[in-house]
């Protein structure tokens, strides 16, 4: 199967006079990590929101698994297998790490309207949750209240919850943010192996991670994709250097 998993067709979105997305077309193919980079305010988060379902584009369509999902809300897209992680951790902070993971497994399996049995004693959910925590190395923290986790551990938990969804595509908004060199390296290694499970659309500021991971890179500037290509192509692209890399890549 070489059909792309996720496609956006000419997405446009304006907030008043500000054009946050201008005719954005990109796709995510099976087995790849597609990185989306661009300076602050380029419209990366706006684009992610439109792909995830939190925001409706003014024009254009979003296709997921060959289906037009532009009219579907976030929850419906998530049920189809679009797993998103947030720039600022969006977790249930009063819950333990395990409860957050079980919540993900519950969303993936369905059956929310069960009122009697103890959900933490549901073996299917619990083993799915524990397996995901184990993969990101959070098993030891299963009983810790999420609000007490370090920033880096929260990022890992975000990824673990995304894993419980058995996703068809990942949408990751700056997973490395604030991780520190060590954590960043570990997560890079982890994401590297993850692409075979489901492709990742990765928004990231950490250029080392992007160039180490990405099969393709798209550069977004002022709401517009100015270039898409392999890491080497993007490095060499004069327009990109001028608009973006020049300042950050020494």
């Amino acid at each position: 199967m070489t059909d792309p998993v996720l496609v956006t067709h000419d997405i446009c979105k304006s907030f008043g006079a500000l054009q946050a997305s201008r005719d954005i077309s990109l796709d995510l193919r099976p087995g790849e990590i597609h990185a989306l980079i661009g300076p602050n305010g380029a419209g990366k988060s706006t684009l992610i929101k439109q792909i995830a379902g939190g925001l409706r584009p003014d024009r254009g369509t979003v296709q997921f698994l060959g289906r037009d999902v532009t009219a579907l809300d976030t929850a419906a897209r998530a049920r189809m297998g679009l797993a998103r992680t947030f720039q600022i951790s969006a977790l249930a902070m009063e819950y333990t790490v395990l409860q957050n993971a079980v919540l993900g497994a519950l969303g993936a399996r369905g059956g929310v309207f069960r009122f009697f049995g103890n959900v933490l004693k549901d073996n299917d959910l619990r083993s799915a949750a524990e397996a995901a925590l184990d993969r990101v190395g959070l098993s030891d923290q299963a009983g810790t209240v999420t609000g007490e986790l370090s920033h880096g551990q929260r990022r890992l938990l975000e990824v673990a919850v995304a894993l419980t969804l058995r996703p068809k595509a990942f949408l990751m908004d700056e997973p490395m943010a604030g991780l520190g060199a060590d954590g960043s390296k570990r997560l890079t290694g982890f994401l590297d192996g993850l692409r075979d499970e489901a492709p990742i659309l990765l928004v990231e500021h950490d250029m080392d991670a992007v160039f180490a991971l990405a099969d393709r890179i798209s550069v977004l500037v002022y709401g517009q994709i100015i270039a898409t290509g392999t890491a080497a192509e993007i490095r060499e692209n004069p327009e990109v250097r001028k608009a973006y890399l020049g300042e950050e890549d020494q």
Partner: peptide, 28 residues
Amino acid sequence: SRLAKSAFGLALSGARQNEDRLRTVGIE
């Protein structure tokens, strides 16, 4: 007390703590 520990309770209280989290795992 059973309700609070059930699947429904987990999701309901999760929605109180973070709506985005619930939607992201596919629960409206």
